[in-house]
Simulated assay, not measured.
Amino acid sequence: MGLPFFFMASLYSARSAFNSAQVHPMLPPVLTLTLVWTFAAFSLIGDGMPPGPPLVQFCSTVGGPLTVTAVSLWELRRMRTRFGVTLRT
């Protein structure tokens, strides 16, 4: 019964709620960078390290956030060098 409402609401929220680039073009990578490390910290605090050898534990815990950080920093650099968009402090 509520499935059509859920589907239409999901489409609307996907179009409007995640448009952080309308605030500032560099906000999506900065927001992504902040959220991925926050979620990694909460996961580490809540669940602890994953099982396995220490190297696997470290790579499993930090590998995802480091990859997202690299892509976000690359995106920030690309916007600055190609389009002249900078963050104001």
Rank of each mutant, 00 (worst) to 15 (best):
S10C: 09
M1L: 09
V68C: 06
R82C: 04
T81N: 08
T89Y: 10
M26Y: 13
L76Y: 07
V68W: 05
F42R: 08
L31Q: 01
R77V: 03
S60T: 05
P25Y: 14
L35H: 10
V71A: 15
M1F: 14
M1P: 10
A21H: 15
A9D: 13
F5A: 13
L73W: 13
A40E: 12
L27N: 10
A14M: 07
P29C: 01
S43H: 12
G63H: 04
M8R: 09
R88H: 03
L11T: 11
R82K: 15
L3R: 07
L35M: 11
V36G: 00
G64T: 10
P25V: 00
L3M: 08
G63E: 11
L31C: 05
I45H: 10
T34K: 09
G52D: 12
Q57V: 10
M8I: 14
V68A: 14
P53F: 11
L66S: 07
P65T: 07
V85K: 00
R15P: 05
R77K: 02
V85I: 11
P29S: 06
G63P: 03
T67P: 03
M8P: 04
R80L: 10
T32G: 06
T61S: 15
T69W: 01
E75C: 03
F83S: 15
E75R: 07
W74V: 04
A17G: 05
A9G: 09
R15S: 11
L3F: 07
T38N: 09
R15K: 12
F39I: 02
L66M: 11
R78W: 05
D47Q: 07
V85W: 02
P54Q: 11
L66T: 03
A40D: 14
L35Y: 12
P28W: 07
A14P: 06
R15A: 12
T89W: 12
V85R: 02
V85S: 04
C59N: 14
L33R: 01
A40H: 05
L55W: 12
P51Y: 04
T69G: 00
T89G: 13
S60L: 11
L76H: 15
L44N: 04
